[in-house]
Write a protein that binds this DNA or RNA. Structure first.
Length: 423
RNA sequence: GGAGAGUUGGCAGAGUGGUCUAUUGCGGCGGUCUUGAAAACCGUUGACCUGCAAGGGUCCGGGGGUUCGAAUCCCUCACUCUCCGCCA
C-alpha cells in the first residue's frame, strides 16, 4: 500500500506512473485525498473533545476537596455530552480510516522508472539469454510421458487420494525433489542467506500483510474453522516475521531463505498448456526474501538476480531473463525480473522464478520499519524471489536431459541425488 | 481436551479506581573524569494520529463494557506458563 502522505503530496505523479501499469488512478486518488481530509478533520475534532473531557475529569478531585459539589455535578452533565460527541466523532473517524484503507489497498504499487510500458507478456523485455536450446532426437517426449515411462511421478495416484494437481513423487522422482530442495537451500546458505522453516498455514493478518488479502483470497486454500490460510508461497510467513517490527540499523541486510510446500487453488487457470508439472495445486519452492534500507534495495535486487542466474547455470539449463512490462507486473511489485527455462520437448519457455522489489509497498502495509541514526522510523524495503520453484525445473531437467536410455542428472546435483541417471 | 496462573516500554519488573505526565533496575545513547578504557557520576532514552509550529490526542495482549475518571473493576477473544489427560 502506498503511503498516504506521498499520495497527498504527489497525486499527479501517482496517476502518471500508474499509467505504465495500465491503471487509471485519477478517480481513486481523488477519493483517497477526499477521505483523508475528512479523516484528519474528524481526528482533530475528536482530540479537542477528548482533551476537554480529560480536563474535566482531572478537576474533579480538586472540586470535591474544596466542597464544590454542585459545580462538580454540573461538569458531570458536560462530560456526558462530551462522551456522546466523542463517540460520534470516533465512529466517524473509524469509518473514514476504514474507507481510506479500503481505497488504499486498491491502488497498485508504482512501477520503477525502468519498467517498460506494455499490455501483456508479449511486451516483456528480454534482457538476457544464456545456454543452448537443446536439439533433441526423435525419441524425445514431454515430461508427462517421461514420468510415466520411468514411474517417478504419479498423477493418477494423486487424483485418487486428493484430486487434480496433487501428484505423488516416487522413487528417484522423490529423491530428485529432495535433492533439488537441499541443493537450493545449501546454495542460499552459501550466498549468505539464513535458512528458515516456516509454518505452512498463516493467520488472516499475515495474509493481509503480504497482500494476498483482500484481493487474492480465491487463490488460497482456507481453513475457515481456525481462520487460517495455506500459504501460496513461503514469502508470506517469511516476510510476516517482520510485521509490526522496528529494526535496528545494524540488523541490515536481512537475507532469508526458506523451503516450503506451496498451495494454490489456481481457480480458472487451467488450460491446454498446463499439462503435467507445468501447473500444480501443491508444489515445492525455495524462496529468498530480503529486507533492505531503501537506498540499498535496487542493488539487492540485482544481487538476487545474479544469484538466481548462478543456480540455473549450475543446473545447466538454458534460460532467459525478462524485465516485466507494466501490464504483466504484479499489483505489489515495483520492478520484477522473470526467469524462464527452455523445456526442450514441449519446446516452450517455462517461468521458474520471479524476483521483485516491492520497495515500501508491502512494508508500509505491514508497518515494517527501521530506525535511522537520528532515531527516525523509516519504512524498509522488501524483496523476494523464487530460488527456485521445483516442478518446472524438474520438467525442463527431464525433457532436456533425456536420452534413449535414461535421463541424465546435471553434475551439480549428483552429490545430492546419489545417482547420475534416471532409468 | 480439563484445571489454574499470567500478558505492563528494547529487557526485567512495580503499580489493583483519581498529580500515572507509568516507580525502579538493566541495556542503549550523550557527557564529565581518564593517555585510552573500565568504574563512578550527571543527563537522556517508545510507538501512532493530528498540527507550519506551539500544542493536543491515542496506546499497559486484541475487542467490548462499567464509571465524572480504568493499567487497575466486568465480559470476551488470542497467546504464554504450570499441572493433568492424549499423542509423533
Amino acid at each position: 500500500m502506498l503511503q498516504i502522505n506521498f499520495i497527498r503530496e504527489n497525486p499527479e505523479e501517482v496517476i502518471n506512473r500508474l499509467k505504465t501499469k495500465n491503471f487509471e488512478a485519477s478517480v481513486l486518488v481523488d477519493q483517497i485525498i477526499g477521505i483523508d481530509e475528512k479523516r484528519r478533520l474528524s481526528q482533530t475534532k475528536l482530540d479537542d473533545s477528548l482533551a476537554e473531557a480529560n480536563k474535566i475529569a482531572k478537576s474533579f478531585g480538586q472540586l470535591f476537596k474544596e466542597g464544590k459539589r454542585e459545580e462538580a455535578e454540573l461538569l458531570k452533565v458536560r462530560t456526558a455530552e462530551l462522551k456522546i460527541i466523542s463517540k460520534e466523532l470516533s465512529d466517524e473517524l473509524d469509518a473514514s480510516v476504514l474507507e481510506m484503507n479500503r481505497l488504499l489497498v486498491q491502488l497498485p504499487n508504482l512501477p520503477h522508472h525502468s519498467v517498460p510500458a506494455g499490455r501483456s507478456a508479449a511486451d516483456n523485455e528480454n534482457i538476457f539469454s544464456e545456454g543452448r536450446i537443446p536439439e533433441l532426437g526423435d525419441f524425445a517426449v514431454p515430461h508427462w510421458d517421461l514420468i510415466k515411462k520411468y514411474n517417478i511421478i504419479d498423477f493418477d495416484l494423486g487424483n485418487k487420494v486428493t484430486g487434480a494437481g496433487f501428484p505423488f513423487y516416487r522413487g528417484k522422482g522423490a529423491r530428485l525433489q529432495r535433492a533439488l530442495i537441499n541443493f537450493f537451500l545449501d546454495e542460499g546458505i552459501n550466498a549468505g542467506y539464513t535458512e528458515y522453516q516456516p509454518p505452512l498455514v498463516v493467520n488472516e493478518a499475515s495474509a493481509y500483510g503480504t497482500g494476498q488479502l483482500p484481493d487474492k483470497e480465491a487463490q488460497m486454500y482456507a481453513v475457515p474453522l481456525d481462520g487460517f490460510y495455506l500459504i501460496p508461497t513461503a514469502e508470506v510467513p517469511i516476510t510476516n516475521i517482520y510485521r509490526d517490527v522496528i529494526l535496528k540499523e545494524d540488523e541490515f541486510p536481512i537475507k532469508n531463505v526458506a523451503y516450503s510446500n506451496c498451495f494454490r487453488r489456481e481457480a480458472g487457470a487451467w488450460g491446454a498448456d498446463v499439462r503435467g508439472l507445468n501447473r500444480l495445486h501443491q508444489f515445492d519452492k525455495v524462496e529468498i526474501v530480503q529486507i533492505r534500507k531503501p537506498e540499498d534495495s535496487y542493488q539487492a535486487l540485482e544481487e538476487m538476480r545474479d544469484y538466481v542466474t548462478s543456480l540455473l547455470r549450475k543446473l545447466e539449463l538454458p534460460f532467459r531473463i525478462l524485465r516485466l512490462c507494466g501490464g504483466d507486473m504484479s499489483f505489489t511489485s515495483a520492478l520484477t525480473y522473470d526467469f524462464e527455462v527452455f523445456s526442450g520437448a514441449q519446446k516452450r519457455w517455462l517461468e521458474v522464478s520471479s524476483v521483485s522489489n516491492f520497495e515500501s509497498f508491502q512494508a508500509n502495509r505491514m508497518k515494517l520499519r527501521y530506525k535511522d541514526k537520528t532515531g527516525k522510523a523509516i519504512i524498509a524495503h522488501t524483496l523476494n524471489g523464487s530460488a527456485l520453484a521445483l516442478p518446472r525445473i524438474v520438467a525442463a531437467l527431464l525433457e532436456n536431459n533425456q536420452t534413449e536410455n535414461g535421463i541424465n542428472i546435471p553434475k551439480a546435483l549428483v552429490p545430492y541425488t546419489g545417482f547420475e541417471v534416471i532409468d
